[in-house]
Simulated assay, not measured.
Amino acid sequence: MTDSRDDGPMVTAKKNSDELTAATVPHAQGSSAVARAVTINKPVTEVYAYFRDFSNLPSFMENVVSIDTPDRARSHWVVKAPGGTTVEWDARVTEDQPNALIAWTSEEGADVPNSGRVEFRDAGQRGTVVTATILYDPPGGTVGKLIAKMFQREPAIQARRDLRRFKQLMEAGEIATPAMNRKQFEEMGL
């Protein structure tokens, strides 16, 4: 008998993906599931260390305004939401396996109840496979999820973009942007 499992995120399963994903997240909160993966050409120790310092996350997470960390287990998140507003929550780390896994859950009273895990897997010469799995309850339910998608603030969209920016930052030391720099403005006479 062959094993039909693979190393893709559980949320990519064709059947019961939300339930399967929730089963992999300790202290799961949230009815919608998102999972994305990226391979970063850096050693797992370096990738994990950068991500584990939560104060680094706003450097590549586009909608994260700030993260305050009173200690290694707790954090306070402020995140941009549609319509120029922000949402906030307190989170606590529920599992931390150095160079392998960080899992969290939001605390009671979160504007967006959520939980998830980020896995770091050594990929040998290819670097590190980073898989982010997020469960969340969108504010406003299905309508709120649709509005967030229209404003490009929906977690599935953001997870893909944020992981791409994380890869760029770790591999190149900067995030590519279509914005013009000062020299380009000067060359155009602007």
Rank of each mutant, 00 (worst) to 15 (best):
M1I: 09
G8V: 14
P9W: 07
V11A: 13
K14Y: 01
N16F: 03
S17L: 05
E19D: 14
A22Q: 15
V25G: 07
P26L: 04
Q29A: 14
G30I: 09
A33T: 14
A35S: 15
R36L: 05
P43C: 09
T45W: 04
Y48N: 04
R52Q: 12
D53C: 02
L57S: 08
P58R: 00
P58K: 02
N63E: 00
N63G: 01
I67E: 02
D68P: 07
D68N: 12
T69A: 08
P70H: 06
D71S: 13
S75K: 03
S75N: 14
S75V: 12
H76G: 12
W77S: 13
W77K: 10
V79F: 05
G83W: 00
T85A: 11
T86K: 00
D90H: 07
R92G: 07
R92W: 08
R92A: 07
I102E: 03
E108Q: 13
P113D: 00
E119A: 02
F120R: 03
T128E: 04
V129F: 00
A132Q: 14
T133C: 00
I134D: 01
L135V: 14
P139S: 05
P139T: 11
G140R: 09
G141I: 04
L146V: 15
I147Y: 00
F151R: 01
R161V: 15
R165I: 02
F166C: 05
L169G: 04
G173W: 11
N181C: 05
K183V: 13
E187M: 12
